[in-house]
């Protein structure tokens, strides 16, 4: 597949995530849209790694170009898992204190 198709697919997923962050008011949906944006970037990184590997493998059959990008995606997933656990704990704490998950209500950090 040409790399443009993957770029445009990832851009579309990323912009859907941005629209979700801007439009929705439920803080959990906003958080899920952030996850969607992370996954769009991961897909693009994997596609680029396969593109570079495909270019390099013509000259050298045993090349490992592109392995770093896939490990980078792996570390992004690791950090995203840690981020989700802390973020959901914060959301649960705010819901317990204010009984609301509305971002327009939660935008004041004090009180």
């Amino acid at each position: 597949m040409p790399i443009q198709y993957y770029i445009i697919l990832s851009l579309a997923l990323f912009c859907i995530g941005i629209v979700g962050v801007l439009v929705r008011r439920n803080v959990i949906i906003v958080f899920m849209c952030v996850e969607l944006m992370l996954n769009a970037v991961n897909l693009l990184l994997v596609a680029f790694s396969k593109m570079h590997h495909g270019i390099a493998v013509v000259n050298d059959k045993a090349t490992t170009v592109g392995t770093d990008a896939q490990l980078f995606v792996f570390f992004i997933m690791v950090v995203a898992a840690a981020e989700v656990s802390v973020g959901l704990a914060i959301i649960v704490m705010m819901y317990r204190n204010t009984h609301s998950v509305d971002v327009n209500f939660l935008n004041r950090l004090k009180n």
């Binding site: 597949m1 396969k50 590997h53 392995t67 896939q70 490990l71």
Partner: peptide
């Protein structure tokens, strides 16, 4: 990026042994 192609179904960099 014109004419660049992401290789599909081939290449072994994504297999668990290499990674």
């Amino acid at each position: 990026i014109g004419g660049k192609v992401a290789e599909m179904k081939t290449g072994n960099i994504g297999l668990i042994g290499n990674l």
